[in-house]
Design a protein around this nucleic acid. Structure first.
Length: 158
DNA sequence: GCCACTTTTCCTGCTT
DNA sequence: TAAGCAGGAAAAGTGG
């Protein structure tokens, strides 16, 4: 069964659209760039590009998902937008890695309107998903795996 | 207002 | 030794 949140919005060549003027627009705003001083110019450029791109989008996107795991999933399914913040380790098994932990936390914080969000807090929330089967533990740092209760991440089910 | 669920916050301990 | 990550406990937020 398709996940209504994801599928229509991450088809190839589908422009990213930010629903709440959320993170992409926020990152296109210079006010938010100081938070990314630790990142490379390439990262900032990528984020800024995403924001510009979002302005002419045509459809609502999944990044309005209310749950953290959906937010993470949607970033993974939108490689143009995650700017290398997340990447698949094993796409078929649902194993992924957080490459830029601080950037991910910042995005989530913007999404939740919480500028005190850190990766430490975000990762704590992710670890709670182990209990519910949405995520499975992988014994490697910054590596997670979608569990049996996670949906919408499988390529052949999109 | 209550309840269930999710997320946030703080803290401690472990690993790299 | 320091920094980063994992997990326990409790509080806060949210929606039904």
């Amino acid at each position: 069964m398709l996940d209504s949140v994801t599928h229509s919005t991450f088809l190839p060549n589908t422009s990213f659209c930010d629903p709440l003027m959320s993170w992409t627009d926020l990152f296109s705003n210079e006010e938010y760039y100081p938070a990314f001083e630790h990142q490379t110019d390439a990262d900032s450029s990528c984020l800024k590009t995403s924001g510009i791109k979002s302005q002419d989008c045509h459809s609502r996107t999944s990044l309005q998902s209310s749950h953290l795991w959906e937010f993470v999933r949607d970033l993974l399914l939108s490689p143009e937008e995650n700017c290398g913040i997340l990447e698949w380790e094993d796409r078929e098994q649902g194993i992924f890695r957080v490459v830029k932990s601080e950037a991910l936390a910042k995005m989530w914080g913007q999404r939740k309107k919480n500028d005190r969000m850190t990766y430490e807090k975000l990762s704590r929330a992710l670890r709670y998903y182990y209990k519910t089967g949405i995520l499975e533990r992988v014994d490697r740092r910054l590596v997670y795996k979608f569990g049996k209760n996670a949906h919408g991440w499988q390529e052949d089910k999109l």
